[in-house]
């Protein structure tokens, strides 16, 4: 069996799930020939395996399915309104209390953060609320970061650590729950052109760059994901650091550490 014949036979098998299921044990000459071809043709082997995986997935999905289970389900109109209204609030939130003017909402979020952290006695973020005079895009990003922070801190399972500078010139926090991780810092100087603040997670295996901080009117921040497309892996990490890097930075930190803290402390 040549490649074209194999491809054609795979296409036929894909139409009949029972034949795909029984393919491995089939003694039908075309199936035997295809198995032999697949042992020396990775492309056909991959193609065949892909159809077999699809067959298993669909078979499971249809297992005990009632007719109604395959009916199209439309999201309700009021959900669309709720989601889009939440975005229009500029906070990206569905919470009623955040239907406030953007800057006020951001300030409240910042103050809430400072109060919560101060109450914990660990971290001082004194003047986040007064530093929001920035561009709309930057302010929106900062507002989103602070809003995420508020949600993270409202989660009873959240964790937070302090970030400090060796010379005491800056301080910050890293707060996270199972979904989001937020880094906030104050006191960092505006980097020179071509320089950026980079966040790193440090584990026994070395440093991993996880994100580049933004700086809006004195407030530095970065938000990472711990679910979905996780951008941060805290497994086995023991320190979190922020460095000042030239350019976009490399795979390992080359610039000075400006903030750091122990994870799990």
């Amino acid at each position: 069996m040549d490649h074209a014949e194999a491809h054609e036979h795979i296409a036929d098998l894909a139409l009949e799930p029972d034949r795909l299921t029984g393919f491995a044990a089939s003694t039908a000459p075309p199936d035997v020939a295809l198995r032999e071809h697949a042992t020396r043709c990775p492309r056909c082997a991959t193609e065949l395996a892909g159809w077999q995986a699809l067959q298993r997935g669909v078979a499971r999905a249809l297992d005990e399915a009632a007719p109604g289970d395959l009916q199209r389900i439309a999201a309700p109109d009021d959900l669309r309104r709720a989601v889009l209204t939440g975005a229009r609030s500029k906070h990206g939130t569905k919470r009623p209390w955040l239907g406030l003017p953007p800057r006020l909402g951001a300030r409240l979020a910042a103050v809430a953060l400072a109060v919560v952290l101060l109450a914990g006695g660990a971290i001082v973020i004194a003047d986040q609320a007064g530093r929001l005079n920035a561009s709309d895009a930057g302010r929106r990003a900062l507002s989103g970061a602070l809003q995420t922070t508020t949600q993270v801190l409202a989660d009873p399972a959240h964790q937070a650590i302090a970030l400090t500078a060796a010379d005491g010139s800056a301080n910050g926090t890293v707060a996270w729950n199972q979904h989001d991780l937020v880094v906030l810092a104050t006191g960092l100087a505006v980097p020179a052109d071509g320089q950026v603040y980079r966040c790193w997670v440090i584990a026994a295996g070395g440093e991993t760059p996880v994100g580049q901080m933004e700086l809006v009117d004195g407030q530095a921040f970065w938000v990472g994901a711990l679910d979905g497309w996780a951008s941060v892996d805290l497994q086995n990490a023991y320190r979190f650091a922020v460095t000042l890097e030239t350019g976009t930075g490399g795979a390992v930190p080359a610039g000075p550490v400006v903030l750091e803290g122990a994870l799990g402390s």
Partner: peptide, 17 residues
């Protein structure tokens, strides 16, 4: 509906990722 809202709000906040 709650999870759909959360998911789209995550997109709104994290689209740059």
């Amino acid at each position: 509906a709650e999870i759909v809202q959360d998911t789209f709000l995550a997109l709104w906040r994290r689209a740059r990722q």
